[in-house]
Structures are given as C-alpha cells and as structure tokens.
Design a protein around this nucleic acid. Sequence first.
RNA 1: GGUCUGUUCGUCUAGGGGUUAGGACACCAGAUUUUCAUUCUGGUAACACGGGUUCGAUUCCCGUACGGACUACCA
Length: 511
Amino acid sequence: MKEVRVRFAPSPTGALHIGGVRTALYNYLLARKFKGTMILRIEDTDQTRFVPGAEEYILNSLEWTGIKIDEGVGKGGPHAPYRQSERKLIYRQYAQKLLDEGKAYYAFDTPQELEDTREQLKAKGISNFQYDSTTRVQMKNSLTLQSEEVKQKLAASVAYVVRLKVPAKEQIRLNDLIRGEVVVDSSQIDDKVLMKSDGMPTYHLANVVDDYLMKISHVIRGEEWLPSAPLHLLLYRYLGWEKEMPAFAHLPLLLKPDGNGKLSKRDADKMGFPIFPLDWTDPTSGELAKGYKESGYLPEALINFLAFLGWNPGTTQEIFSMDQLIEAFTIERIGKAGAKFDIQKAQWLNQQYLKAKSDEELTACLLHSLAAEKIECSKEKALKICGVMKERVTFPQDFWLQGKFFFQAPITFDEQVVAKKWNDDVVKVLSAYREALIKTENVTAEVAKSTLETVTTELGIPTGKILQALRTAITGGASGPDLMMTIEILGKNEVVSRISYALKNLKVKVK
RNA sequence: GGUCUGUUCGUCUAGGGGUUAGGACACCAGAUUUUCAUUCUGGUAACACGGGUUCGAUUCCCGUACGGACUACCA
C-alpha cells in the first residue's frame, strides 16, 4: 500500500471552526493508523480575507486537541513552503503548462463586465450565468480575441485571469470513499478561474497542485467540496496526474442542534455552547468568542465527542482515547448523513473524563480557580473538597463554582428552605448543636454526626426534620455534598460561627 | 431554479430481505444517598411517504416529500 499522507488545509480567515477540528481529527486518525504523515498546509490564497493571528490560532488549537502535525507550517518538511502564498511561482508554472497545451485560456472580462452579464441574463429570466463552453465564445478571452490582441493585452499588463477550458459534454466519474461513485456531466461545471488577476491561484488549482506535489494519498475534507471534486479530477487529468490522484473522502457536515441547516456560530451562541476550540477575539470587532478549552471542556472529551459525530466503531464502546480511536478508525465506518450537534453528549463525556482524573489533577483544578480568586487554601483541604465534589462536577471550574461555600460563609440563605423548614424545632436543635460542638474536640464527620444525633435524641426531634435547615445554615444552599463531611472540612470554629450567624439572622416565620 | 447529496427513537447511531429493530445521551419512574449529584434497575421513544421486486421489505429498485451542500477572480 502507498504511504498514507494526509493534509489538513485550513484557510486563515478566522478562528478554526469546530467542524474544522473534526476534519483535522479524521485526517490525523487515518495518518496515525497507517503510520503515515499528517501535513498542515495553510491555504491563504485569498489576500482579502486574511485575518492576522488566525494561523497561530489554528496551530494552538490543534496542539490543544492533541492533533499532532508531522509536516507543514510550524514544522517544516521536504515540500516546504507549506503556506500557499509562498508558492505562487509553482502554481504559475502549472497554469502556464495548461495554457500552452490549450487546456486553459486567458480571460480579460472584468468583474464588472461579468456582473453586468449576469444582471442582463437575470433580466431575461435566466437565473444563472455560467462561464462555460456555451458562453465563452461571447466573452473576452484568448479563445475569441485575435492572438495579436491577446499578446498586446498581456504585454500591456491588462488584468486577466486564467480559466480552465472545461469540455462541453463529458461524463466525469469520481469514486468517493464515503459516497461511492459520483457522476457529473462536465456541462454542469463552469470554466473555473485557476489564476486570479492578482496572480494568486484559486483554491482549485493550488489544491490540486499541492496535493500532487506533496504526494497526498487521501483527501479527507468537508462535503461542501463534493460538487467541485469532478473539477479537481479534470485538473489531475489535464495535468497528467490522474494515476497519482489521491483518494477522496467527503465528510458529512455538522448541523445545527435545532431545526435545519449547518452549524454556525450564531447557533452556538444561541444555545450557549462554544463553536471554537479556544477563546477567539475577532480582530476587527474586538468581540470575544468563548472556546471549548476556556469553557472547561477537556481536550480528550472534545475529541471523543467529535470523533463520534459521523463515525462510530461498530461496537457499543463509547469512551475512546485518542490511541483507541486511531486503532478503531476506518473511513468505511464514516456515515453519510449530516450530524446534528448535541452539546449534552459532550458534557456527559466531559464528566466521564473529569471523573477519571486523579485526585491530584482534580485538586489542581480547584487550586487553579482559587488562585484566580486570590483565595488561600492548603493542599490537604483542597484534596478533601475535591474528594467530596468529584461525583458532582461536569467542568473543572465546578469545584469552585459549586463549592464556594467552603471558602465563603453564606450571607444569604436559600429562601425556599428557610420558608419551609426553618421552625422552632430547628432553632432549638441548632442552638443545642452549636453548644455541643463548642465543647467537642476534633470534629470529624463521624463526630459531627454522632453529636447531632445525641442532640436530636435529647430534644426528641427527628434528625431528618432539621437536616436540610442545618445545611442551609452552614452552606446557604439547599443541596450539596455530604453535610457531615462538609462540617469536617469546614472545621468546628467555622461551623459554630456560621450556625451562630444563621440563628441570629434567620427568623421563624410567624403563621 | 439547476447540479450533487442525504433521510433508523428528541439527538448520536448499530443493524440489515424473516430481529421483541440494539446501544449511548437526554427524558421519566423506582432503589441507594436522611438533600442534591453519583451509582444501579426499569420505562417511554425510530426505520419520512408512495409504488414496485419478493412468499416476505425497515433493508433492494423507482418515484415523491423533506433536508443539506454547491452554483464567486472565497475557501
């Protein structure tokens, strides 16, 4: 088998979309599975859409997700440069070759002229103008103009583009690894621009030339490219590279969670989940878009989630590490239909991965949050808190968000609990419990519990009746981790002071 | 509009000419937890529609409907 060489080829026009991460992932999985090479190529042929910082963002995102680049931008390699803007001259040569062989031609129609033609046709009720074998005879190009005139224009540096001379009527058959045979009639394809008037190639030319020169074996890309795949085949054919042409696999798209349509940043914002792997600040608007990383998603969970959107191993196993994904991955098991993006599953996976982490790692999460809040905490205490919080968190920041009461005494109390449960019995028990605790040494969870039971027994009040009120007095909330452990972690003095505060500030509702 | 492409529980999906159509998330109920969460057990829930082919179709074929992509000197 031919060496597997795949590429991820994003455009640096903004932050890397989550769908792009999935495309990169599938490429990476295939590369690793067959001990091949993962290449990163930056397709920056559109200078008008270039966004500063986007390339770095792509690199950072891939690094965070654990998708490693073997060759390409940021890494170098035998086919450098890997940034298309730096390969201009290469494309020029191949465009010239096509020109020389009569497979492409110069076109001098200005964008304005093309626009006018479209308008005119639209006025006549023809919805779409296509620059192709039926229309090119009416346009200004090296096929219709006298060769002298063409020479003159070129010499005078009149702006031109190079267009592919697509045959009038020819069936083009393409075998897609995911979709099977796709047949398109060449009459449906227009004479695509290969070289723009600014001297840059379009995606189509650059892509084919680079994939050939970089010896790409498999092109795994989004489904949006399927309609132009036959054009690419034509290019390989005209360039004499059909035998070396890579295999194609067009991935189904990621769809929005509700309704229809492809997943967009708008949907993500609306539903409250990230669309980008990392935080991204739009350089023009200055607007910040939250990333998966900063929202608390673990890269392994995100990868696991993304891998399963459009692919599955055919077994019932759901949790897969990157290595396991590499082992199990096959292109054949990629589905054909678009997958709706369901963030709930990602959250569940995140929880699974978070729970699987060691106590040290979990503690580090809490300590990290605390440092940001400038709160001091011993490692021992943090360890205990994490132990008790572990089963209830989805994101690393939840240790802090849901465990604030460990560090801050409540000022307000859950209103419902107060209204329903705070009564004379509670005041009696809590007062007595407070006194009992003061006299008790070494208040562990066990001791806290037995002390409470002693008090309630003496007063003849069932423990269950006052427990939730006690929790609210100590934590302010209505629910949380095991209360006796909470008391142990908080320590006798803190608990006593919190009960005192609650007794002083909470009034029994008069009926 | 045209071309291409897709359609199994709410969602991700397995399956495949004869199955009680399987799993996971979500949801609901019960058990555990003197709370909540976790965990466990159970439950609701799907083959888009219409024609063929066939003894039999969710599975194969053809239509229809509905989605999606593309239709730029963007990728």
